[in-house]
Design a protein around this nucleic acid. Sequence first.
DNA 1: GTCATATGAATGAATG
DNA 2: CATTCATTCATATGAC
Lengths: 205, 205
Amino acid sequence: MHQHVRCIFSVQKLITNKKTHLTNLNMDEGMSGFGLKSSRNGSGGAKCGRWNPTNEQVKVLTDLFRSGLRTPSTDQIQKISSQLSYYGKIESKNVFYWFQNHKARERQKRRRVYVENDQTNHVNVTKQHLVEVSESGRVVETLQLFPVNSLAFSEQSEKTSVYTNHECKENASPYTTMYTCGTEMENHYHNHHRHPSLDLRLSFM
Amino acid sequence: MHQHVRCIFSVQKLITNKKTHLTNLNMDEGMSGFGLKSSRNGSGGAKCGRWNPTNEQVKVLTDLFRSGLRTPSTDQIQKISSQLSYYGKIESKNVFYWFQNHKARERQKRRRVYVENDQTNHVNVTKQHLVEVSESGRVVETLQLFPVNSLAFSEQSEKTSVYTNHECKENASPYTTMYTCGTEMENHYHNHHRHPSLDLRLSFM
DNA sequence: GTCATATGAATGAATG
DNA sequence: CATTCATTCATATGAC
């Protein structure tokens, strides 16, 4: 709604100058449909156009992120997007933005927490030893992702917490590192996806 | 009129499941004596989840906002947060969000008024004393904030949106300028704050 | 209890 | 990549 104006601008921008990485990803697709997920809004309002990732999509993206992926290439983005489309409407740009945002916010949080620790504890915290995995560095060859077919099962590993009520102790450490260089993905799970064997096998690089 | 619908849904949402990234932080709400924030959240509840600013914190933040600060840099955020922590538990991100929200809502309100004016004489709904244009222009180097001992003094000029022009875009010089409307701050008081002369001296750039 | 609002928190989407 | 904006979600509080 309110984005109309901005959207118009942005599109123009895109066309005019910004012919970058993004452009290859149909960034200008605009917001065609949007699968009213049941997950988040589900309101009858139908939302104006913002992508609303399903839990499954988020799960997968998060897993990818945790596995070390930070800045997927256009190719990867496309693959991911393609795979995730199984769970609901999604576009390449969504994936692109997701990673951008996730990465940025992770960094931001870390920065803030760091400072906070620093000043409250007066400890020259060296908690900063989190080895930021550079996406350029070692990456897993292939990543096996399994479809989370039902929330019933996926929720355990994630924070998903339905805590919402009291003791929102959930993700007590949202900021804490989870930067393991994706090798652990190897043995992540070899579950049984009863779903259309939709395994997101992404070849990083 | 626009949100109630969502509220209903949100409740349902609660039940279903969310993927919120609630970052629990807080708990306890600090509140080192004195304050007794009477207005918001009457102590007790709200233990988990949400930061509950004390009146002093709100006062300072509001003053900063009124003085022209809109989007503090990370550095500023940290300083502010640090200083405000004197009054109670607070994290950088709270400050960040506070400004983000405050700004956004002011904008939103303004927009809303516009629409109302324009569209039709809908209802003379709370035209908001949105007038109050500040003659911004001068730049201050440092801003002295004084500790609010108590909510003694009234704060009713909350809104005070700078409201320069449409699309004020004060970002023209984000971190360098400060609109001083804060002359009043000068003489706020030099009373004895029983607190460690906690003066928020923020050097804006 | 329901509805409504204020506001903290989050996040998709951009922009530069 | 950092910053910002717009919108939405969540929840505490208060009126009815």
